[in-house]
Design a protein around this nucleic acid. Structure first.
Length: 319
DNA sequence: TGCCAGGTGTACT
DNA sequence: AGTACACATGGC
């Protein structure tokens, strides 16, 4: 820990044996709250645990993290960053030798995205985010989350390279639970039912009826987590699996969306992926892909494939 | 213009 | 158990 020159007291250097692609990580679509500031090096800024967090990407040197607190989420700043960015997972070895042998062309494509990390994000934020991600494109999803933070989140000001900035924290479950549906609807792409669903889910979290800490228990089965989450209106199997993967640190969860479905058909030849995505087909597709990808990190590998498919095959650059 | 976008709930058969 | 459709809007 030492003083930084960004108006923030604490900083931590995260050294790593391998390069972490901060840009791909924060803008791969799994998180929607990081802003990129350009200077000599790229900086990525968000507000987490009520504190501005600045990540400086240093390419081969590793990462540096700045915050005005010396600990976040009960962890020292550097430990929090290692956890949040899942630096304990080496994505270079999740594609097993058998996979690289059987799917050589895909493994080569995915190699370009080593450094992409699956974040361990806050489960409530993750739940709201993916409830706002039904059948619409990334730009609208990102806008919704930004609006929810701007309208309901606490402003946090900080100085960055001599300029004053204001970002917004993600609002608490209590704050969203007490929101008027009409105010929330303006944030949720004008979708009234989505606003009601998000508010009801926030109420369940605020009342303790929906307890993410219980769900995060490692001995819970993926099926029981999915079933519990699906009791909330607006959360189906796909969003439940997204919450498990990105919000509960369950890297074995394998959400199947429109992009995943496409590469399951095109890359792995799963005929069922061409059929309508009923609950039965959804579960059966998960079973089939787990015979191809190591089930313990199927979701982590799936996110690499997801990102690779969007960027390399679909030519999408939108976060 | 028409189709696709990180799906889900409801109302049918 | 499977199918059709509404939901809302931006991007290509």
């Amino acid at each position: 820990m030492h003083n930084s020159n960004h108006g923030d007291r604490y900083s931590a250097i995260i050294s790593s044996d391998f390069t972490v692609s901060v840009h791909d990580t924060l803008f791969s679509g799994q998180t929607f709250r990081w802003e990129m500031y350009r200077s000599h090096y790229p900086y990525y800024v968000s507000v987490i645990h009520g504190s501005p967090i600045i990540i400086k990407s240093m390419d081969t040197l590793g990462l540096s993290i700045y915050s005005d607190r010396d600990e976040l989420g009960g962890l020292p700043l550097s430990k929090w960053a290692e956890y949040y960015l899942s630096l304990d997972i080496n994505e270079r070895v999740i594609m097993e030798p058998v996979f690289r042998f059987l799917h050589r062309d895909i493994a080569l494509l995915v190699q370009d995205f080593y450094g992409l990390k699956v974040l361990r994000q806050d489960p409530f934020e993750t739940a709201v985010t993916f409830m706002c991600a039904q059948g619409i494109g990334m730009p609208i999803i990102r806008r919704q989350i930004g609006e929810i933070c701007r309208v309901f989140g606490d402003p946090v000001s900080f100085t960055f390279e001599g300029t004053r900035h204001t970002n917004y924290a993600f609002p608490s479950p209590e704050r969203i639970a007490s929101a008027h549906s009409e105010d929330l609807r303006i944030c949720t792409n004008n979708n009234c039912r989505r606003a009601v669903n998000v508010r009801k889910m926030a109420e369940a979290v605020a009342s303790g009826e929906l307890d993410f800490r219980k769900l995060a228990s490692p001995d819970r089965s993926l099926d029981s987590i999915r079933d519990e989450l699906c009791r909330n209106d607006g959360i189906g199997p796909k969003i439940a699996d997204c919450i498990a993967l990105f919000g509960l640190g369950r890297f074995d969860a394998f959400p199947i969306d429109t992009h995943v479905r496409q590469y399951l058909l095109e890359w792995f030849g799963l005929k069922r992926a061409a059929m309508p995505l009923t609950v039965n087909n959804y579960m059966e597709l998960q079973r089939e892909i787990r015979s191809v990808i190591n089930p313990e990190i199927a979701g982590y590998a799936g996110h690499l494939l997801f990102h690779c498919w969007r960027r390399r095959v679909k030519g999408l650059n939108t976060a």
